[in-house]
Design a protein around this nucleic acid. Structure first.
Lengths: 359, 359
DNA sequence: CTGAAAGCGCTTACAG
DNA sequence: CTGAAAGCGCTTACAG
């Protein structure tokens, strides 16, 4: 005779001839259950197709068996962002074997962001969160710590933090990029930076400055953006409008570099002969535009996976493990080359450009 | 005197001088509570900072207050996919006011996919799911229906289905694209299709065929892909290697079209004078490559939002509302133009191309 | 090694 | 309109 309703722990206990408590012990790997009893219980559970109820467990253990990711991004940026989809895929890789699941919140601004964390905590929606896109004076670290919510920071925060860190040194890639350009002969290099409120944006910019000054060069110009494709194009136009445009542009992301490439081509400039450009991320797209982008490849999938593993270790074992992933690497490709002997000269009377030298 | 532990419904009941049941009634908007009593209870809850415990509610109501999205995508495709991030942003828009949250699962293959749904149901992780990327003979519809899980299908399924559908006619865009190319004078048009297991891939291909035949033309060639950037480039190379290459290529996605553009440029071909190309999605990137892509713009954010609203209506009110969103629209841009009077001729002795006619 | 019982914090008939 | 109580399905001291 089978039971029509979904079986409960009581059914399993009855079938195995033990108490509910014992069944619970077996399913929570607690010691002190005789092997035969244990086997009998597992058998009964299997026969009945029983698995402990998640909501019942959640209520009595105050655990949600979920991890939270709050992504703050404008809608217009989100579709061309190469980081998050891959980062999330990495998290899911780590979660595949576990009985935990990812709760994702996408919010437009800081207020909604803070509310999102508070709701997640109040409702015990998640057992821990990923802190990505760390910012200057990031309020989240304090808020999350005060709420008593376990977390992992993706990258090093600027402020002291109790949370484990999973880092991937992407700034290193900027140094390699600048060194590469300098070696090609470039002396006038500009940087189309990311969002200068975010630590990774700031770090890349600082790295750029340092790399330039260690080559005894001054940045032609540094332009902050919101990481959008449109901003990448705009910044490029701004650089071309300079009296002394750079001979090379270091972009903080592949999508911005691709937009920059489009704008340069539209203006009739050749890459890399008229302008060298470099991207950042090492996306598949970067390999397939023409000329293929010199870029910096990081591994966001591995980053997500490591972050999830670290967060699980913190939640389950209470251990803080910091992880340092292999640094981002320069991928030299076709979009960089030696500068022209003579530089591009801006036609002062018009916004268009004329190119000196021969084609 | 304040309570140090988190307040419960019992604390609120005591403070308001009523029973727990009444407090529950008030918070679940059930009729039959005197206005003053109601006000007193709300006041007490507010004073104590109480909100009903989600896990307790979940246990007694068998509701999780969450929606599920299972995305089946290869890791290599996921970062250049313009659809999902925007679709998810749309879902979150609809969820912003609600007390529900999104549970996201990313899986690599069909087995993991089925397991994901089963786990979501067994653990009552979600109250309903989004069914995206509908396939030919899609097993999910039956499985999800059998599990008794509410769902919304994103696009029309090929099989009879009990679920509400939120549709955006994107195929219409293909017709407009073909008409646009034909009007420009193209007679030899190829299609770099999407994944031909997915209904939207199949529909776009069918639409392409129909549009061609209604213009009395035969497709030069149709090549199925996995939607990856690399596949877009590969298919383009394949078309160029034909004895009679097309004069225009209709791609099933912007990323593939951009990769195709890169390959064409690499081969020294001019777009659109040597080859017209069109994308699909209307991404920001499409506007910023050179030449800007003629493409078909849909609105994945609106799609996600409508899908979430429809799913919530089904779950909360039990009502099935079908939604038809504005059809995808042609955005004619710079990547399409009239074909050359004389066609490209393949040099039979070598894989490279020579171009007839003058530049 | 095992069992009986309280507790997690709600919801919901049911009786008044 | 209101209260007392059972029930959702687990976990976990506690006593034996």
């Amino acid at each position: 005779m089978t039971i029509s309703r979904k079986p409960t722990i009581a059914d399993v206990a009855r079938a195995a001839g033990v108490s509910k408590g014992l069944v619970s012990f077996v399913f929570n790997d607690r010691p002190g259950v005789a092997p035969q009893t244990r086997a009998r219980i597992l058998q009964a559970a299997d026969d009945l197709g029983w698995r402990p109820s998640l909501s019942a467990r959640s209520l009595s253990t105050r655990t949600s068996f979920a991890l939270g990711l709050v992504v703050r991004r404008y809608a217009k940026v989100i579709s061309s962002d190469p980081f998050f989809p891959a980062f999330i895929a990495g998290i899911e890789l780590a979660l595949a074997g576990e009985s935990r699941v990812l709760v994702l919140c996408v919010v437009p601004d800081e207020d909604s962001e803070m509310r999102a964390y508070q709701n997640l905590v109040h409702d015990r929606r998640v057992d821990g969160v990923f802190l990505t896109d760390l910012r200057l004076g990031d309020r989240r670290l304090g808020v999350v710590a005060n709420l008593g919510l376990p977390a992992v920071t993706v990258g090093h925060p600027e402020q002291p933090s109790e949370f484990p860190v999973v880092n991937l040194d992407d700034s290193a890639g900027i140094k390699a990029v600048v060194a590469h350009l300098v070696q090609l002969g470039h002396r006038h290099i500009a940087h189309v930076a990311g969002d200068m409120v975010m630590l990774h944006g700031i770090r890349r910019e600082r790295c750029f400055r340092e790399a330039m000054s260690s080559a005894d060069l001054k940045p032609t110009k540094i332009i902050g953006t919101d990481f959008s494709v449109a901003a990448g194009a705009r910044a490029t136009a701004e650089l071309l409008a300079l009296r002394q445009p750079p001979t090379a542009i270091v972009y903080a992301s592949d999508p911005m570099a691709i937009a920059g490439l489009g704008l340069l081509q539209e203006r009739g400039l050749q890459v890399p002969s008229d302008m060298s450009i470099t991207g950042f991320d090492g996306t598949e797209m970067a390999r397939h535009v023409f000329p293929a982008l010199t870029t910096v490849s990081s591994d966001p999938v591995a980053w997500g996976q490591a972050a999830a593993t670290t967060l699980l270790t913190l939640i389950v074992e209470g251990r803080r493990v910091n992880v340092e992933l292999p640094a981002a690497e320069l991928i030299a490709s076709a979009s960089t080359g030696p500068p022209r002997p003579q530089r591009i000269v801006t036609n002062l009377s018009a916004p268009t450009l004329t190119v000196s030298g021969t084609h």
